Simulated scan of single mutants.
Amino acid sequence: MTAAPKVLVFAGSSRQGSLNKQLARLVAKRIEALGGVATFVDLKDYPCPLFDEDIETQGIPENVLKLRKLLADHQALFIASPEYNGFITPLLKNTLDWLSRPYEDTPGLALYSGKWAALVSASPGGLGGIRAMPLAQQLLANLGLIVLPQPMSLSKAHTAFDETGAFIEETNSKKLDALCQRLVDILACTSEKILL
């Protein structure tokens, strides 16, 4: 019997009331309910300096090392990516950049190699953060991740959640569950092939 697939979940926002952080928490709950193991991480708890090779030569920051350990222990990333002026957030880019760096015996990008990634986005507007989604997909692919197609964009997200953090509309629940299930199934299938 194969172990349940492990997915690292976070949002590209550190703001306390972030809709994308709320969505990421819901993603983690749904992955657990659908047979996976999810670890939700709040990037606010892992502040990292703006990537700078001068800082890197003095030693990898402690929070980057903690995030590296988390990433190494999971088969996939599931990111709730906000949209800032039609682009991904500086926080998301900076976090992914730090994790792409070589460290000790691990070459650059090695932490991402062979891992899957899935994306969602939430916005109070009508587009649901969709303008930044292709940019996030491109970045993840550039890093060597296998990006699950057909991400989910959640428009009018400020009215989408109930007091428990679940979706009010069943349509949104079905869309998110379908995306989470696809990722869990792919990871489980990949693990079985490795064991064979």
Results as ranks from 00 to 15, higher is better:
P49G: 01
P49A: 03
D52A: 07
E53D: 06
D54C: 10
I55S: 12
I55M: 02
E56G: 01
E56M: 05
E56I: 08
T57Y: 02
G59S: 00
I60A: 14
P61Y: 12
P61H: 02
P61K: 05
N63V: 06
V64L: 06
K66G: 09
L67S: 03
R68H: 09
K69F: 04
L71G: 11
L71W: 10
A72H: 13
Q75D: 07
Q75S: 10
A76S: 13
L77W: 08
F78E: 08
F78Q: 11
A80C: 02
A80Y: 07
S81R: 07
S81F: 11
S81N: 10
E83M: 12
Y84R: 12
Y84K: 05
N85R: 00
G86F: 09
F87K: 13
F87G: 02
F87V: 07
P90I: 12
P90W: 12
L91W: 09
L91G: 02
L91M: 01
L91D: 04
L91E: 05
L92E: 10
L92P: 08
L92F: 10
K93G: 13
N94L: 10
T95L: 06
L96Q: 07
W98M: 11
W98L: 04
W98F: 00
L99K: 02
R101P: 01
P102G: 07
Y103T: 00
E104V: 10
T106W: 12
T106G: 03
T106S: 15
A110S: 12
L111G: 09
Y112C: 09
G114D: 04
K115G: 07
W116P: 05
A117N: 00
A118W: 06
V120D: 03
V120P: 00
V120S: 05
S121V: 13
S123Y: 12
G125N: 00
G125W: 04
G125P: 06
G125H: 06
G126L: 08
G126F: 05
L127Y: 06
G128P: 09
G129A: 03
G129D: 03
R131Q: 15
A132I: 00
M133T: 14
M133Q: 15
P134L: 03
L135M: 07
L135N: 02
A136V: 09
Q137C: 00
Q137N: 08
Q137V: 00
Q138M: 15
L140D: 06
L140W: 12
L140A: 11
A141W: 10
A141F: 13
L143Q: 11
L143M: 02
L143T: 11
G144W: 10
L145A: 09
V147N: 11
L148K: 11
M152P: 09
S153M: 04
L154Q: 03
L154K: 08
K156D: 08
K156M: 10
H158T: 10
H158E: 15
T159Y: 15
A160L: 01
F161L: 13
F161I: 14
F161N: 04
D162I: 11
D162G: 12
T164L: 08
G165M: 01
F167G: 13
I168T: 13
E169T: 13
T171D: 15
T171Y: 05
N172S: 13
N172F: 09
S173D: 15
S173A: 04
L176Y: 07
D177L: 05
L179M: 03
C180R: 01
C180T: 02
Q181V: 12
R182Q: 14
R182S: 14
D185Y: 07
